[in-house]
Design a protein around this nucleic acid. Sequence first.
DNA 1: GCTATATTCAAACAATCGTTTCAATCGAGC
DNA 2: GCTCGATTGAAACGATTGTTTGAATATAGC
Lengths: 212, 212
Amino acid sequence: MAQSTCDRILDAAERLFAEEGFHVTSLRQITQAAEANLAAVNYHFGSKQALILAVFRRRLDALNQARLERLEAALDAEQTPALEVVLDAFVYPAMAFTHGSDDEGHRFMRILMRAFADQNDQLHRALSAEYAHVMRRFADAIAAALPGADTTQLRRQLDFIVGALTYTMAESHLKDARSIASDLVQFAAAGLRGTVDSRSHSGATRTLEIAP
Amino acid sequence: MAQSTCDRILDAAERLFAEEGFHVTSLRQITQAAEANLAAVNYHFGSKQALILAVFRRRLDALNQARLERLEAALDAEQTPALEVVLDAFVYPAMAFTHGSDDEGHRFMRILMRAFADQNDQLHRALSAEYAHVMRRFADAIAAALPGADTTQLRRQLDFIVGALTYTMAESHLKDARSIASDLVQFAAAGLRGTVDSRSHSGATRTLEIAP
DNA sequence: GCTATATTCAAACAATCGTTTCAATCGAGC
DNA sequence: GCTCGATTGAAACGATTGTTTGAATATAGC
């Protein structure tokens, strides 16, 4: 018995949630996979909903901390790091999760996307609150690397990047996570730079009026 | 009675799926909201899973057809339309759905994201198959507008755009869908152009080696 | 008007769900 | 060694699920 009952339940729940979904996964499946008793879930976590939240916090705390550490390191090394460095600090730790021993990172990204699709629940609010702190830091760092950028537009574009990252990681069976991360960083950097029209880049910025 | 029982069930199911999710929504909720009998679902559709598929096909067919029509119109007007025009043909019809009479479009995008989060099911395979046809057309059009672009990298970037689009539409309560669509088109165009390094754009393309 | 087909209805089906209960077991502290 | 709290165990609870059944009703064709 290497792990405690709590951890075994968390591991089993994470795996099953990713494979099947939150609501279709029963506590009986989880406890059976964890070699624990059915009542252990309600004893240790209180309810199924609380278990779901616990599964998320465990990984999300680590992910966001890794992101912030990487950002801090970049800010220590340079006063205003290049755009790619900031984006990499955001993207790479997420990708690193998909590169763990087995598929645990890929699994987690799947259930992370599932969570963001659950618009209504308290789960979404809890995750957004968790994200808000990190997002503000990165928005600031990006704004510093992009003088003249519009703040509200930049926040929108950050949503684009989060969407591209989450979707891509949940979608592809990436053996080449590192290559995809590099592609996304490059893509996002070019997208961000292309919409800053104060310091004109060689006319690469085109506008298109969308038909009504 | 303006609509048939079938249509009332489809409408009610779509609304409830978006609000609650697939598996937590019961057939009793659906039939009650549709003012139909419980057995009507199994009579008209065969099973709950078949109903879910029917809900998707109804809207997805219309969305993809609208995209292709817009792309064809652009290809008729110009031999190789500008990148922004192609991207707009992909993005705008999706955004137009979120701009319907009530929230029906926004609702649909939420359940579309939910569907893509359901990795395993036949639902995901059915939707990917439905998408594949459209994606190929757009990939070709984008490749034509971007001479010298790498094909596999371009397909990856298309996934980025799909992710950004789906995530953004599922996330924000957009009153200003048109503005967001314009932002996304501009962002994506710049991102795509920024990674084509054959015809060098003013050194805007930077590469970053990601740490191991 | 009658018949045959299509649809709706109320009721019951078996299965599964999350949760609760209470006794059994374990493990440290004195 | 004994006791008390923490943990686990088996079983049952009430509720809800998707599906099926068979009778009642509406609708079309002749």
